[in-house]
Amino acid sequence: MSQVLSLWRRCASVPVVGVRVFSLAFAQKAPYFASIRPRFTVIEPDRAELVIPDRRRVHNHLGTVHAIALCNGLEAAMGALAEATIPPSKRWIPKGMTVSYTAKAQGDITCIAETEPAQWAGDDPDLPVRVRGVDRDGQVVIEGVINLWVTEKKARPAESAAAAGAAR
């Protein structure tokens, strides 16, 4: 089990406070995520959800949630999903994001990232993660795909030397 998934499960078992602690810790690991104050609600293999609370700091000139705040939330959800799902022998990095803004984003927005288990098992390094943001009424306000590049981890020099020595 990944460190992120393990920490999530421990924190989520502590009512109210645990989820806040996890969300703050996650945002500290990648400080830009703190700008949206994500509140994670689900982290499990192939799925992650978080809420971007509605506050003036994430608004645009129209008074709705800014497009970049939404993308930030989608990327945070995708990152939690990737960390909770990726096999231990692999690593990931985001390669690109394509999104459509489908409605005005008002109120708290739930950002959702999803994959299928088979996507992580193959050899194709291109891995699309489906993402969407929904408002309190369930209306999709943003949707798209974040493309990951997933490859095998490279052995560290000490690991390579140990493996070479064992092969002799």
Rank of each mutant, 00 (worst) to 15 (best):
Met1Thr: 09
Arg9Asp: 15
Pro15Asn: 04
Gly18Trp: 05
Gly18Pro: 04
Val19Phe: 00
Ser23Pro: 00
Gln28Lys: 15
Ala30Gln: 10
Tyr32Glu: 07
Ala34Trp: 08
Ile36Tyr: 11
Val42Ile: 15
Val42His: 09
Ile43Lys: 00
Glu44Thr: 13
Asp46Lys: 05
Arg47Pro: 05
Arg47His: 09
Ile52Leu: 14
Asp54Met: 04
Asp54Cys: 13
Arg56Gly: 11
His59Trp: 15
Ala67Cys: 11
Ala67Tyr: 05
Ala67Trp: 06
Ala67Lys: 09
Ile68Lys: 00
Ile68Gln: 13
Ala69Cys: 11
Gly73Lys: 03
Leu74Asp: 09
Glu75Gly: 10
Met78Ala: 14
Gly79Glu: 12
Ala80Asp: 04
Ala82Pro: 05
Ala82Leu: 11
Ala82Thr: 13
Glu83Gly: 02
Thr85Cys: 05
Pro87Ala: 14
Ser89Gln: 14
Lys90Glu: 00
Arg91Trp: 11
Arg91Val: 15
Trp92His: 03
Lys95Thr: 08
Met97Gly: 05
Tyr101Val: 13
Tyr101Asp: 06
Tyr101Leu: 14
Tyr101Trp: 13
Cys111Phe: 06
Ile112Cys: 14
Ile112Met: 07
Ala113Lys: 13
Ala118Phe: 06
Ala118Met: 11
Gln119Pro: 00
Ala121His: 13
Gly122Ala: 02
Asp126Tyr: 07
Leu127Ala: 04
Arg130Thr: 14
Arg136Tyr: 01
Arg136Met: 08
Asp137Tyr: 04
Val141Asn: 02
Trp149Leu: 15
Ala155Arg: 12
Pro157Gln: 04
Glu159Leu: 02
Ala162Met: 07
Ala162Thr: 05
Gly165His: 01
Ala166Glu: 11
